[in-house]
C-alpha cells in the first residue's frame, strides 16, 4: 500500500520535475531506529498529502543510526542537493559539520527550514524559520516544575556525554530549579550505556544510594526514565522520576504514578509544520511572522495524560 503510494509519488515527481514549477523538498531526520523520529515522520507524512495535492513532492531522508552522525547528516544534505530539491527541512544537531554544507546548499538557491534542534545557529544557516523547542527553555520549565513540586536536589542525567543540546537541557534544568530554590547535580553516563536500561538503572541506583538528598531526577533520554523508575523501585528512595520526551511506556508509568512527568516538545508539530510551511513558502510565498515557533515545552503529567494517550494511539504523540 505504502509501496505503491511511494511509487506514485516518485512517478508524479518525475513527471513534474520536467516542468519548472514543481516544488520538491527534502526532509532530513535522525535514526530509523529512534521512536521519537517516528512521530516526526507522522507529521511529515500528514504534511506530504498537502504538498502532493499542490503538485510538489517530499523526500524523507533518515540516517541508519547515530554513530558517525555529523558526516551522515552532511551526506544526506549533499544527496538532497544532488537530487535538485528546492528546499530542505533539517534539524542542526552537529553545527560544526552541518553549517558549511547547509551554507553551500543555500548558495545554490535552496531554501532551508530548521526544526527540532540548533536554534542558536539559526542565523548562521540562514534558515527561514525554526519549529521546535528551545532546549534551554525546556530544561528551565522542567527544573522549575520539579522544584515547585517540592524537589530540593535534582539529578540531571545525560546519556551521550558531549552532546551540546543535552548539556543545554541540563543547564536549563539547573537554572530553572535554582530559581525556585533547588540544587541540581549533572550525571554523565558513558556512551556504552546509551540505550542500556539495566546498566543505566544500576548507575542511577548507585547515585541514589550514594547521595540520599536526591529527591528528583530528570533524564535527557526517555529510556532514562524507565531506568530511573526501576532504580526507585529497587531502592525505595523517594525520588520523582521525569524525562525529556516520552514513549508509550512513559505514559503507562505516568498513569501508574511511577513517573511524575515528561517534558514534551511535540515532534508531530515539528515535522508537520516544518514540511508544510517550507512548501507553502516555496509555492505560495507565505511567511510566518512568529520566529522562532516554539512547539515546547509541553509538560505531560497525571493531569493531561489521558488526552496524550489518545494521540499516542494514533502515532502523533
Amino acid at each position: 500500500m505504502k509501496f505503491t503510494k511511494s511509487i506514485l509519488v516518485a512517478a508524479t515527481a518525475a513527471m513534474l520535475s520536467t516542468g519548472a514549477l514543481a516544488q520538491d523538498i527534502a526532509v532530513i531526520a535522525g535514526s530509523v531506529e529512534d521512536a521519537f523520529m517516528d512521530k516526526i515522520k507522522k507529521g511529515v507524512d500528514d504534511a506530504t498529502h498537502m504538498v502532493v495535492a499542490n503538485g510538489g513532492s517530499v523526500q524523507y531522508l533518515r540516517t541508519q543510526n547515530y554513530e558517525n552522525f555529523g558526516p551522515d547528516l552532511v551526506t544526506l544534505i549533499n544527496q538532497a542537493v544532488a537530487q535538485g530539491v528546492d528546499g530542505i527541512a533539517i534539524p542542526v544537531w552537529v553545527p560544526d559539520a552541518q553549517i558549511p554544507a547547509l551554507q553551500a546548499a543555500a548558495g545554490e538557491g535552496i531554501k532551508i527550514m530548521q526544526y527540532n534542534s540548533g536554534l542558536p545557529v539559526k542565523d548562521d544557516i540562514g534558515a527561514l524559520n525554526y519549529f521546535g523547542s528551545d532546549e534551554y527553555a525546556a530544561g528551565f520549565g522542567g527544573g522549575k516544575y520539579l522544584a515547585e513540586k517540592g524537589a530540593k536536589h535534582i539529578l540531571c542525567h545525560i546519556q551521550v556525554p558531549g552532546a551540546i543540546n543535552l548539556e543545554e537541557r541540563c543547564r536549563g534544568v539547573t537554572d530553572g530549579a535554582t530559581a525556585a530554590g533547588a540544587k541540581v547535580t549533572v550525571l554523565n553516563t558513558p556512551p556504552n550505556l546509551d540505550g542500556d536500561v539495566t546498566g543505566t538503572a544500576e548507575a542511577l541506583k548507585a547515585e541514589f544510594i550514594g547521595d540520599d538528598s536526591i529527591d528528583a531526577m530528570v533524564s535527557c533520554a526517555d529510556f532514562g526514565a524507565a531506568a530511573g523508575a526501576n532504580a526507585v523501585e529497587q531502592t525505595g528512595a523517594n525520588v520523582m522520576v521525569s524525562a525529556f520526551d516520552f514513549s508509550p511506556a512513559t505514559l503507562d508509568r505516568i498513569k501508574a504514578g511511577t513517573q511524575t512527568m515528561a517534558i514534551d516538545q511535540q515532534p508531530y508539530l515539528q515535522g508537520f509544520l516544518a514540511t508544510s510551511m517550507l512548501f507553502a513558502h516555496l509555492k505560495f510565498g507565505t511567511e510566518i511572522s512568529t520566529d522562532p515557533v516554539l512547539t515546547g515545552p509541553a509538560i505531560v503529567d497525571a493531569s493531561n495524560v489521558d488526552a496524550v494517550v489518545a494521540g499516542a494511539a494514533l502515532g502523533a504523540r
Binding site: 540505550g195 536500561v197 524507565a226
Partner: peptide, 16 residues
C-alpha cells in the same frame, strides 16, 4: 525478561 522488567521494547539496543 527485559520487557517484563521495564515494560517496554525498542528495536535497537542489544548490540552491547
Amino acid at each position: 525478561a527485559q520487557v517484563m522488567t521495564y515494560q517496554q521494547a525498542n528495536v535497537a539496543g542489544g548490540q552491547a
